[in-house]
């Protein structure tokens, strides 16, 4: 078992390494950091451009494999490289991962809880009005891209604010920089800024999970052991929650673990639309800004987090599923 896990882990590490190298090489050859010097007035002399780009290992005149070698060497020494404007990729990365984590934590958890509860409830009320309404609602939300939901929520919040006559809901950025005071005195303001992005994340996550949970629960509801539980005299509620839901939770918990482990990856659309400076927004900006080293670092981090999430998934399944646990 231990040997198997080690082999699996080694395989994963190799996969991440190749994926990241590919991302670096693709980014280094298709992005153009030199474009930042274009159209400057007064024009920047080419030698100066080269000097600056060389310093950050971004010069397109250096052969791409030489740049790749330098990059790998830096990574091996724990240095993720520099942005085109001289910033440190590593510092930006840790700051933005934290911002993404703050943004996604509540939304992901709420999405998981609402999704599981709604799915289980719909399955118990199979083919009744509740079930039809919940399923169709989830289906409709799944057909709405995240950016459409986010913009609709913004429009709704603006209408509400105008109707009330004061800014009830704020939806741009993490907090209001004009407000004095430290983190704790502004916690209300921060929560206010979290409302809309959290609803966006919750709706998307919950509708997805709900449909899964509903079909898993339907599969379980007809099974013998639930009937046995009822037959031996358990109340319907106890039988449903302790025997049916517990087994039917496995697929949803697997999905939820994955979502939870990747909260630091960020949410590209939600962050961009609501002005949160997290990983998702950074990724879009670095590609638009031809920031090779940052793009490669993001790919690497995302790859590692995804693998970590899959690993966690395996562990959680092993813990939940009696067949896997015993066997």
């Amino acid at each position: 078992m231990g040997k198997y896990l080690v082999r699996r882990l080694v395989n994963y590490v190799v996969l991440v390494f190749i994926a990241t190298s590919m991302a670096y090489l693709l980014a280094a050859t298709s992005l153009n950091p030199r474009s930042h010097f274009l159209g400057r007035n007064p024009p920047v002399p080419v030698t100066t451009q080269d000097d600056i780009l060389n310093r950050y290992n971004l010069n397109d005149k250096t052969p791409v494999f030489e740049r790749y070698g330098t990059w790998i060497d830096n990574i091996a020494h724990g240095n993720l490289g520099r942005d085109y404007d001289g910033g440190y990729v590593g510092a930006n990365l840790s700051r933005r991962m934290w911002v993404s984590g703050q943004l996604l934590l509540i939304g992901t958890i709420l999405g998981g809880l609402v999704g599981v509860a709604a799915g289980a409830w719909a399955a118990v009320r199979h083919k009744k009005a509740t079930d039809v309404a919940l399923t169709q609602g989830a289906f409709f939300i799944l057909s709405c891209p995240v950016f459409v939901i986010a913009i609709l929520l913004q429009v709704g919040a603006t209408r509400l604010n105008n109707a009330v006559g004061s800014r009830l809901i704020s939806f741009s950025g993490q907090f209001d920089p004009a407000k004095p005071g430290g983190f704790f005195s502004n916690i209300g303001d921060r929560l206010d800024h979290l409302i809309l992005p959290t609803i966006t994340l919750m709706l998307a996550g919950a509708s997805y999970l709900m449909l899964y949970q509903r079909s898993a629960m339907l599969d379980v509801l007809g099974s013998d052991y639930v009937r046995t539980a009822r037959a031996k005299g358990l109340r319907r509620r106890t039988a449903l929650i302790k025997h049916a839901l517990r087994t039917a939770l496995i697929p949803s918990v697997t999905l939820f673990t994955y979502a939870f482990a990747t909260i630091f990856v960020g949410a590209t659309f939600t962050e961009t639309i609501f002005g949160w400076h997290g990983m998702g927004e950074w990724f879009v900006q670095t590609i638009q800004g031809s920031d090779t080293n940052a793009v490669a670092a993001i790919t690497a981090v995302v790859g590692v987090l995804i693998l970590f999430a899959s690993f966690l998934q395996d562990v959680v399944v092993a813990m939940l599923d009696p067949r896997v646990r015993v066997g």
């Binding site: 996969l15 994926a19 991302a23 693709l26 590209t268 590609i287 793009v295 693998l307």
Partner: peptide, 19 residues
């Protein structure tokens, strides 16, 4: 197949967008 699953596809397509 496993390699392509690890690579975040949205990222790679976006990186290649100038091409």
């Amino acid at each position: 197949v496993n390699l392509l699953l690890v690579i975040p596809s949205f990222l790679i397509i976006a990186i290649l967008s100038p091409r």
